[in-house]
Simulated assay, not measured.
Amino acid sequence: MTRILVLYYSSYGHTAKMAEAVAEGVRDAGAEAVVRHVPETAPQEVVESAGFQTMDGHECIGSPDELAEYDGIVVGSPTRYGRMSSQMAAFWDQTGGLWQKGALIGKVGAAFTSTASQHGGQETTLWSILNNLLHMGMTVVGLDYGFEGLTGVDEVKGGAPYGATTIADGDGSRQPSEVELDGARYLGKRVANTAAKLAN
């Protein structure tokens, strides 16, 4: 069975909810979805003062070496000034050994993110994730326009051809909408289907 890792970091729960939706899409395609988060690297005083939520709903990934066990990897991170969070970047900074061995070449990769506003760096954050996957030799899948939720201006929503996104608002009060969650599900399904085809 095709195995897809959904790897994320989340400070306030928005990216975690998107990760669950990606996993739903993976399972809908008949593949196995494993959801893990990267370690928290912020000092405890920062975590407490900023009111970060714990990521207790999923296990923390043990080692970057685990990435090689999967047929596809979907990476999610909230934006930090238009790029992935330092927590996610710190994890990928430890994957040099995998790069040297070419351990991820040919595997399928994709990205998702959460930003405070529509223009808060969604596409640049997705690209900061995708750059890592491309350097690893992975085959990147985006959120193509087969997902109809990418078009239309009838409501405020995230979404980009580079990956699934959600908008949290400046105070984090907005939760992922059904359209945004559907985009994450669509992305998960596309990754799983693509990985299955490449394995045959």
Rank of each mutant, 00 (worst) to 15 (best):
P43A: 06
G97Q: 07
E59M: 01
G96Q: 06
E69P: 00
P64L: 06
A16V: 03
P64V: 01
I61H: 05
R36D: 13
K17G: 07
P39V: 07
V46H: 03
D65K: 13
V38F: 05
T95E: 08
A50P: 00
D65C: 07
S85F: 05
W99F: 10
F91Y: 15
A19S: 07
A90D: 14
L98Q: 04
P64H: 09
A89S: 08
R27E: 15
Y9E: 00
V26Y: 02
Q53P: 00
L67P: 04
Q87P: 00
V34A: 12
R36V: 05
L7T: 02
L98K: 12
S10R: 09
M88P: 05
G76T: 06
E69H: 08
E24T: 10
A50Y: 13
K17Y: 01
Q44I: 13
V35F: 13
V47N: 00
T95K: 01
V38H: 03
F52N: 01
L5G: 09
L98T: 11
Y12R: 15
V75H: 01
G30Q: 10
M55L: 09
Q87K: 05
V38W: 00
R83E: 14
Q100D: 15
I73C: 00
E59G: 11
C60T: 15
Y12Q: 09
V35L: 06
A29H: 08
E59W: 05
Y12F: 15
M55P: 04
G62T: 15
V35H: 04
A16R: 09
L7V: 04
D56E: 15
E59V: 02
Y12N: 05
Q53I: 06
C60S: 13
V22F: 08
A21Y: 11
V38L: 05
G57P: 00
H14T: 12
P39E: 09
S49N: 12
A89K: 14
G76S: 06
Y8H: 09
D56S: 15
Y12S: 14
G82H: 13
F91V: 05
D65L: 07
D56C: 04
V6G: 12
A19D: 11
I61G: 14
P39A: 13
F52C: 08
P39K: 14
S10C: 13
T95F: 03
E24V: 10
E32S: 10
Y70S: 00
C60V: 14
H58T: 10
A50I: 05
W92K: 02
T41E: 06
G13T: 13
I61C: 13
V6N: 03
G57M: 00
A29Y: 01
A90G: 14
L7I: 07
F52H: 12
V35T: 11
V22N: 04
G13M: 10
V35Y: 11
A21W: 09
R80D: 00
Q44H: 04
W99Q: 00
V46Q: 12
E48R: 15
D93F: 03
E66T: 08
L5M: 15
Q94M: 15
A16I: 06
E24S: 08
G97V: 10
R83H: 12
S63H: 09
K17L: 11
V46Y: 01
Q87H: 15
Y70I: 07
A19M: 07
S11R: 15
M84H: 11
Q87A: 06
F52E: 03
S86C: 06
V47L: 12
M88N: 07
T41G: 11
I61V: 14
